[in-house]
Design a protein around this nucleic acid. Structure first.
Lengths: 205, 205
DNA sequence: CACTGATGTAACCGACGCTTACATCGAAGC
DNA sequence: GCTTCGATGTAAGCGTCGGTTACATCAGTG
């Protein structure tokens, strides 16, 4: 009765992948707090002990989801960077990729920022996160070296990151007042805010 | 055996207030996820059912903490606004007050932004939050009317709010890279970021 | 000094995270 | 083609949690 079970009943077939997908659906439908190993198992029509064959704990399941989230984030940023070469434009594209990802994958974003619920230090999450930050620092260092930055690179890095993160969370928490909760509109507003800030710190030749 | 019980044992005396204070201590020591009505009761040397005389649920307890947090935030902002009259300076002071509050009361900040764990709509929280936002919008409208704003007020409002919120959360999540976790240093960095951004959108006469 | 309302206790409920013993399957080796 | 075995699922159980309820103890009032 499951989605992807080829044969009869006993073995699910691909429970691990199914659990990750079902967790995302559960978060979108009921919220992060309702994620329970038992609940995920129940929704997949499987016994309450089955998940533990694939995942040792609730935290481990959410960490798997967070790793999927990080992969999608990296893919989104890579796509946004495609064909962009000017360093400050690359920084801007990175911000765009992050916001697209966060707004279009709210459940993933929610999980990856729930530091108390996932194992951020173990797993590649810390490393991937640091790599992203380092990439952005490099982009700004290059831009500064070319005299295109009207402010200190460290300043732009911290402000840009805080701005993007704040915008994403405000959307997630329904803090965009009149724009309602329409994701497409929120994406436009957020990206415009980033662009506007970067225009302020860009040196026009 | 409790801290503030005047007489023997049976009645605590001021359990409600004690629970709120103990919850804050528990969050600072063990994290928000470990907050449990039973655990709070245990730490106060009281039976597991006692808290329910004062609070109907875990969410209600955290909502009480959030209300205390909101009071402190309002007080901090009021203090920052004292004697400041220029509208754009008032906006800046509001941001400073928020950051001081968030960085010096990390547990309170954590609770108030845990929308899934508190009753944000009931209780005065939604109203107080909206009032704050309205005040900031007014500050910027006045500044714009005086020709002091180099950008659209709505733009500065959303960017300023996202920036402050993002900075506060980055500190809470330990995202300030080399500045370590020293709250005083983080406060300086965050406030400097706000000031720097506002300087960019201020029209110098 | 009995009564009463407020406050704390104790015992209980279903659900949860997690463990363990056992059942069932697919595939490999003979 | 049969057996064996590792991987995967089930069933039952442990301790704890959030929350409820019946009862015990207190402080103040008539």
């Amino acid at each position: 009765m499951t989605t992807s079970t080829p044969r009869g009943t006993y073995h699910h077939g691909d429970l691990r992948r199914a659990m990750i997908a079902e967790t995302i659906r559960l978060i979108e439908a009921e919220g992060l707090e309702k994620v329970t190993l038992r609940e995920v198992a129940r929704r997949l029509g499987v016994s309450s002990g089955a998940p533990f064959r694939h995942v040792p704990s609730r935290m481990a399941l959410l960490t798997l989801v967070a790793e999927e989230a990080m992969e999608r984030l990296q893919a989104e940023i890579a796509a946004a960077l495609e064909g962009v070469s000017a360093p400050l434009e690359r920084f801007r594209a990175t911000g765009h990729g992050f916001l697209r990802w966060a707004i279009r994958n709210p459940a993933h974003f929610q999980v990856i920022s729930a530091r108390g619920l996932i194992d951020f230090e173990g797993s590649g999450l810390r490393r991937a996160n640091d790599a992203l930050r380092a990439m952005m620092a490099d982009q700004l260092a290059e831009a500064a070296a070319q005299g295109m930055l009207g402010d200190a690179p460290e300043q732009v890095l911290i402000t840009g990151r805080a701005l993007a993160y704040g915008l994403a969370r405000m959307h997630l928490d329904g803090q965009f007042p009149s724009w309602g909760l329409d994701p497409a509109a929120a994406e436009q507003v957020a990206i415009a805010a980033i662009d506007r800030y970067l225009a302020l710190v860009t040196v026009r030749p």
